[in-house]
Design a protein around this nucleic acid. Structure first.
Length: 773
DNA sequence: CCGTTCGAATTTTTT
DNA sequence: ATTCGAACGG
């Protein structure tokens, strides 16, 4: 699918190329001659691009930096550049690498390329995230640095478990040393390519000492489990390339043209990787926007883009400043906001799009009313034919903000999807099933084995004590606990000093694992999954549960199985590693469903790179945007402002900003004031909504009488006596009817059959049940 | 060794 | 408010 948004708006056509081309730079003019030569699709590749975009597409040799403002056709340039490389015969598809920020972006590039070149070529282009690229490299060549092809990828939960384990082993109090904070230190150390001993020798405080020692243990654990964390995927690839120049040479030779998207959000390790891969041919094109750098907390280093010209003095620099996405009002607002940042290279931002409606600023009482206003506006936009649900996004700073909006959407029965939050692959039951599969693929993954033992019937009769024995015994034998089990089955090893019954259990368990591993060779992944779920008792536990939330977990497992089926063309032994890789590396946004007609709810971070005709940016309040935890330094504050900028620039036509005067934080009503970022908006593009009469009631403490009528929209909140048979509404579970009521110490315990969420038992005083008359 | 219960902490953003 | 961990009792 070729997006021809530009043409529809009368973007400059091909005649512009001949006017503004710069032949001496190898620009479009020169290429204009060339595109008449053999390849017939070249016109299609260059047509509809403006002069700057054209230069970016056709400057194929040597280092190129594209500084691309929001909506300036960055993805388009990237895609067309790749197509141009292939179309002009400069490169074969597999010689081109396009590194994207998410898997979704990679998919999109491949799809669009398919439209330009045909799907066969498009599939051969190496498009993916740094992390997925590194997995491929390490699976193939990692054995050189002691990494088996079956290695496991640990997510943050696994990482935290390891840090906590390390703390326990070192006899340190996990209460005193926050595992999360330590993990942050380890990540920074890895990004600076510091080893545990580097950290040790640089230590300036007790904390540094602790961090160094934890790091040492942590790294040992990973190695023992044949596992890597997210940083390791990058770090160990850099190590591989450094230690084995022949391996690096192989990839340099294969990947002749490198494209890196969202370059402003790369970290030092990614930068190293880019340098290594590009150091031979130097055909490197990085695309990014320093003003949209919003991931410094994940070690992204804005210097990578700011200092690109220092690293590559001969780089061609191309600036894309014209915005094809948004109305002049939105562009003006964005420009005014970002201008306030001091750490910034000033850059023009403009559009020639026709004006649209003003930006609307909604003043609300609390998040319920905010949600109500947003949702009723959504409703009216759709009813008047000004938008479809899929054109609309609700953006917020933190995931918790989605809740009030979700409740309001459910009330109006408006279809929606939430991106992020509790991600699918992070759910407990999914992680349990994944741990099972991980152990089968990589028996040395003792962390997953531990999870299997504690969460499934495989662990029945085997507790913490036995596991400890097993681990110690394994360590003496230089093998993993799972290996120990396998050895026990083969009776090649004397059992450790344990009760006879326990040894019998261990042998049984070993037998289960051996059988499942054998099945892996013969059966496809989904069948192995069924088998593993049955044998481990996970199936029985969730499928046959009476509790509806447990059964919901079963539904999730069934859904997981359907993902697995995609790998069924090969035996599980081959398919499972690929599936586990996918499971480990999917981004929240990768799961977005763009085909249905539904409103999208997502964080500002997740919204990066996306655009919507209608955007609601909610909770523009001091402490939330900018977030309270980002007020330490000027640099952090500037990043928050960039986040606001990213949010504004997602909107094509209509932008709504909202804030509340009171917000429920921690179950307490807290006063909230509008974000000072709002002061930077040009007054002439903003229309204020609400606030009249509202400000008068604002300094009256926000009592229930003030708020109740607005928030509930017609129905009345009640805590009167409930009776069986009544129809009720719950903000989260929707419609239902009361099955039973039990009097309980001045309160009522109600059992409700919900239409969509099954049977729940709730306390009348706590559940916000509304009786429908 | 396992399950339950009570208390505490959690809320920034995520490959 | 929910979820996770520790402690306790069976």
């Amino acid at each position: 699918m070729l997006e021809e948004r530009g043409n529809a708006r009368g973007e400059p056509g091909s005649e512009d190329l001949s006017v503004t081309g710069e032949p001496e730079r190898g620009g479009p003019f020169q290429m204009a001659g060339e595109r008449l030569v053999p390849f017939s699709g070249m016109e299609r590749i260059l047509i509809g691009l403006d002069a700057d975009q054209c230069v970016a597409v056709t400057t194929t040799e040597g280092p190129v930096l594209v500084v691309a403002g929001p909506g300036s056709g960055k993805t388009r340039v990237l895609t067309h550049r790749v197509a141009y490389l292939i179309g002009s015969g400069r490169a074969r598809p597999w010689q081109i690498v396009a590194v994207t920020f998410t898997n979704k972006a990679a998919r999109e590039i491949r799809e669009r390329l398919g439209g330009l070149l045909g799907t066969e070529s498009a599939q051969l282009v190496q498009a993916g995230t740094f992390h997925s690229l590194c997995v491929r490299i390490l699976r193939r060549d990692g054995y050189r640095i002691g990494l088996e092809p079956a290695f496991t990828i640990y997510d943050e939960e696994d990482q935290l478990a390891l840090v906590k384990q390390a703390l326990r082993d070192l006899g340190l109090d996990p209460q005193r040393f926050s595992a999360r904070m330590l993990l942050g230190r380890l990540s920074r150390a890895k990004n600076d390519q510091h080893s545990p001993s580097d950290l040790q020798s640089m230590a300036q405080s007790y904390w540094d000492e602790v961090a160094a020692r934890v790091y040492e243990r942590y790294a040992q654990y990973l190695q023992r489990a044949q596992a890597v964390d997210f940083d390791d995927l990058l770090l160990r690839t850099v190590e591989l390339f450094t230690e084995y120049p022949d391996v690096l040479a192989h990839y340099q030779d294969r990947w002749r043209y490198l494209q890196v998207d969202e370059y402003q959000d790369t970290n030092r390790l990614q930068y190293q990787l880019v340098r290594q891969l590009a150091s031979g041919h130097r055909n490197l094109c990085v695309v990014g926007d320093p003003d949209q750098s919003i991931y410094s907390w994940r070690q992204a280093d804005i210097r990578n883009i700011l200092e690109f010209q220092r690293d590559f003095p001969d780089a061609t620099v191309i600036r894309l400043g014209r915005n094809y996405r948004s109305t002049p009002q939105i562009v003006a607002a964005a420009d005014a906001v970002i201008r306030v940042n001091r750490q910034r290279i000033e850059r023009p931002l403009w559009t020639e799009n026709p004006p649209g409606p003003p930006i609307r600023l909604l003043a609300c009482w609390d998040e319920q009313q905010e949600a109500e206003m947003v949702v009723s506006e959504i409703d009216s936009l759709v009813r008047t034919g000004n938008a479809r649900y899929r054109d609309i996004a609700v953006l917020y700073r933190i995931n918790a903000q989605s809740r009030s909006v979700e409740e309001a959407l459910v009330r109006r029965q408006i279809p929606y999807q939430v991106i992020g939050g509790v991600r699918f692959y992070e759910r407990k039951e999914i992680k349990d099933a994944l741990a099972l599969l991980r152990v089968l693929v990589n028996p040395r993954d003792w962390l997953s084995l531990r999870r299997v033992l504690s969460e499934t019937v495989f662990g029945r009769g085997i507790g913490e004590k036995t596991l400890l024995q097993l681990e110690q015994w394994g360590q003496r034998q230089q093998c993993s606990p799972a290996d120990v089990l396998l050895l026990l089955v083969e009776e090649r090893e004397e059992a450790p000093a344990l009760a006879a019954a326990t040894v019998r259990r261990l042998r049984e368990l070993g037998g289960e694992l051996v059988r499942l591993r054998a099945a892996m060779v013969e059966h496809p992944a989904s069948q192995l999954f069924d088998l593993a779920l049955e044998r481990s008792g996970l199936a029985a536990r969730y499928r046959d549960a009476s509790d509806p939330t447990e059964r919901e977990r079963w539904e999730n497992l069934v859904q997981l199985r359907s993902v697995l089926e995609r790998y069924d063309t090969v035996p599980a032994a081959e398919g499972l590693p690929l599936f586990l890789e996918e499971a480990a590396l999917v981004a929240a946004i990768d799961e977005a469903e763009m085909s249905g007609d539904q409103v999208t709810l997502l964080t500002l971070h997740a919204a990066k790179g996306l655009e919507f005709p209608v955007v609601f940016l909610i909770g523009v309040e001091e402490g939330l945007l900018p977030h309270a935890r980002a007020l330490e330094s000027e640099a952090e504050l500037e990043e928050e402002r960039r986040l606001f900028y990213v949010g504004i620039t997602r909107a094509k036509e209509r932008l709504y900003l909202s804030y509340c005067s009171s917000r429920n934080r921690f179950g307490l009503h807290e006063r909230s004031i509008p974000s000072h970022f709002l002061d930077d908006l040009p007054p002439d593009v903003v229309e204020r909504v609400g606030g009249r009469g509202w400000s008068a009631s604002a300094h009256v403490s926000s009592s229930i009488e003030d708020r109740a009528p607005v928030a509930t929209g017609g129905t009345v909140p009640v805590m009167p006596r409930l009776r069986a048979g009544q129809r009720v509404f719950h903000p989260r579970f929707g419609d239902g009817f009361v099955v039973a009521v039990r009097e309980k110490a001045g309160d009522q315990e109600v059992t409700v059959q919900f239409k969509r969420h099954g049977i729940k038992t709730l306390l009348a005083s706590l559940a916000k049940l509304v009786v429908e008359e």
